[in-house]
Design a protein around this nucleic acid. Structure first.
Lengths: 213, 213
DNA sequence: ATACCTGATTGATCTGAGTCCATGCGCCCA
DNA sequence: TGGGCGCATGGACTCAGATCAATCAGGTAT
């Protein structure tokens, strides 16, 4: 992107935070006006169904964009909640869309981000075993963290087990048991929220069924 | 949209078809160059996993757009296959994206379509009972058909039971059994591929959990 | 220190839906 | 007009994962 483009983008950015764990970035039903890029920390997006059960849709690491699924419709279809200390950049959507008409590169990037999220959402919809889901979760976290410069083999899960379970559509007990078994089988090492991947190839193989697209 | 916009759009449209049942609109892995709007008939999109099992991602009725999930990446992540006689309009994506920089209304529409697909893909990912899934499927078909001017209460399923089952991540037998029970309970009437919704409110209630967003 | 609370783990039991198999029903084509 | 093939239905059994019910950390306030 050229100089003036970066300048334009810089002008419409609004820095937000730091947010405390549990703080809302936006709430389900809020009127939609902006997307946001995570700068530091982790954000979860979730919806509350009719019976009051939370449904976690995703976890968002630094560098990732939240709020895209709200473009269609006046309101955010989900809430975004900080899992730890979070800082982010807020972009007015009307403004960034307008800018995108002048910057084909930016438009293309937005299309790609949206398209990528479709593929991502489709992943969880397959019918996969608990082992596959958890292996895929670990591998995906590892890849995304590695892409941000963190260690791919050893990292910290910033969310509680219940959130992982909810996100993967499993019972917390199942997550616990599978992680335990993976450890007994020498594939990983877990200590609370700290995870180390010991047999990446084995995990990749399991995860393949889910992650492939 | 203004006159010249429509003209520009008209120029880059390419009419395709009629396609026979089973014919491919595009194949998983084909290099991505165009999106398409269904003009008549039904198209299913599906992926084949490592073990060779088909995974159906969606059914697309007249007026709906296919190929959006391919924007991110060089290739289509799924195949699109005609279920009956299908006609469609093909739009070169580079061209329509370029046009969108000149037509903010078109850009906005594309953003909305992409965003909507994210929400749609998220639906199937929830953990729902077979009853909820099938009720949601029937209600959603009814709504989409009604939006195209067809009857909301009585319609033809254009896909075999196996495809419905695959799409909903259920066994074909389960689909069969649930449809049978819904009929016994007086909620629907089924004769082969013909369906009539008799107790819409009951189905809506069941479907709510899935469809709500 | 000690009590307490929240989240994680573990074990025992239950169940919805998958699997396997047999049968039924159209529908097409020879 | 009858045989065959794909799709649909129904019954019996099985199993992965949910649910129920105790513990078990590991922090935090007292």
């Amino acid at each position: 992107m050229d100089k003036s483009a970066l300048h334009d983008l810089h002008v419409l950015v609004e820095h937000v935070g730091p947010l405390r764990p549990g703080a809302h970035v936006f709430r389900e039903g809020d009127s939609f006006d902006a997307i946001a890029a995570v700068r530091s920390g982790t954000v979860k997006t979730s919806r509350v169904d009719r019976e009051g059960h939370e449904q976690i849709l995703g976890f968002h690491l630094p560098g990732e964009i939240i709020g895209l699924s709200a473009i269609d419709g006046e309101r955010y279809p989900c809430s975004a909640i900080a899992l730890d200390n979070v800082q982010l950049c807020r972009f007015s959507f009307p403004k960034i869309a307008m800018l995108a008409t002048r910057l084909p590169g930016l438009q293309k990037q937005l299309f790609r981000l949206l398209s990528r999220d479709i593929g991502h959402a489709e992943r969880l919809s397959g019918d996969h075993t608990a082992d596959e889901r958890i292996a895929a979760f670990l591998i995906e976290m590892s890849r995304r963290l590695a892409a941000r410069g963190y260690s791919a083999a050893r990292f910290q899960l910033t969310m509680p087990r219940t959130d992982i379970a909810n996100y993967l559509r499993l019972a917390p007990e199942t997550v616990s048991r599978v992680l335990r078994r993976f450890q007994d089988e020498g594939r990983i090492r877990v200590r609370g929220r700290e995870v180390e991947l010991l047999d990446r190839p084995a995990l990749e193989t399991l995860a393949e069924a889910m992650l492939r697209p």
